[in-house]
Design a protein around this nucleic acid. Structure first.
Lengths: 156, 156
DNA sequence: TTTATTGACTTTCTTTGACCTTAATTATAT
DNA sequence: ATATAATTAAGGTCAAAGAAAGTCAATAAA
């Protein structure tokens, strides 16, 4: 018997296909649809819809709350997608980050202005914590920015 | 399922646009128009029309009472400079950061795309460290970005 | 041993209502 | 006519209830 988590994963991916890569759902609805604990939805999201997998999750609690799942656009830019999935590991130095940004500008994926803003966000000065932690934070911030850039939603 | 508070927020913002940023209304009228408790109007104002959001609220009780909402329009560089120098202290919550970003978008200081990228950089998820440190890092990253935005303006 | 499942508990956000304060108007007493 | 009291007409506050999602650790399954 296929694991429920896999079934839920497939279900969400089907929904995403039908809705062109962007989807808002109610955790409790989905849980009761599959007759499982609500927290299992979180488990599925945490293990199969991470940034590294190419998905971006947003959510809100309270009345009218939701979970929003965005499939990042693979076609948009292979290099960025590669960076997000494999090119950036657990840590990223300032120097490496700047090199990535340079290349992104050269490839015309972001403007010089974008690069300048992003650089300011991930600079050593901005990340004012003990240096042992810096590269880890920088990696996660950089990935988060890549996800935003790859996000389908052009309006934003 | 759309939150009533959001609908009321939009309604007020539409009115504000029509009246060039200044508006007087009756709490009870608005509440009965939306068929909600009067105190929900206060909730909307308290959560969506704060100073950080760029609004100023004045009111008066008793007969002939009113609520006056004023959108604070400012000069871009003045605002960024103020925010950088005084408006943001040692710590900045994600919520506050988003409020500032919303205001910057509404005032056309930055694009929605910019805001989206910046938001991704300062989100709780991106800053993956113990929560006691998060707001401090966020403040310093946010300031660093503000400084970048300011210096981009100077280049012109 | 790793991966899934479950459920108790927590946090966040929204909605509602009971009660409080302030201002204006109207009625009453001097 | 005037000062005062009562009434009415606003808006404010706060806490409780409700509506979501998140976390984490214990167990179960593979």
């Amino acid at each position: 018997m296929a694991r429920l988590s896999d079934i839920i994963e497939d279900f969400i991916k089907t929904l995403l296909k039908e809705s062109e890569g962007e989807l808002e759902l109610q955790r409790n609805d989905l849980a009761s649809y599959f007759d499982c604990a609500p927290s299992q939805i979180n488990y599925v999201l945490a293990t199969r819809f991470t940034l590294n997998h190419g998905y971006y999750i947003e959510s809100r609690r309270g009345g009218g709350g939701y979970i929003r799942i965005v499939r990042l656009d693979t076609d948009k830019d292979d290099y960025l997608f590669y960076l997000l999935k494999e090119g950036i590991g657990k840590e990223l130095s300032e120097q490496e980050a700047v090199q990535h940004l340079q290349r992104m500008v050269e490839q015309n994926f972001i403007s010089k202005r974008d690069a300048y803003i992003i650089k300011s966000a991930i600079s050593d000065k901005a990340i004012a914590i003990p240096s042992t932690l810096k590269d880890g934070i920088r990696a996660s911030i950089f990935k988060s920015i890549l996800a935003a850039l790859l996000s389908l939603d052009e309006k934003k």
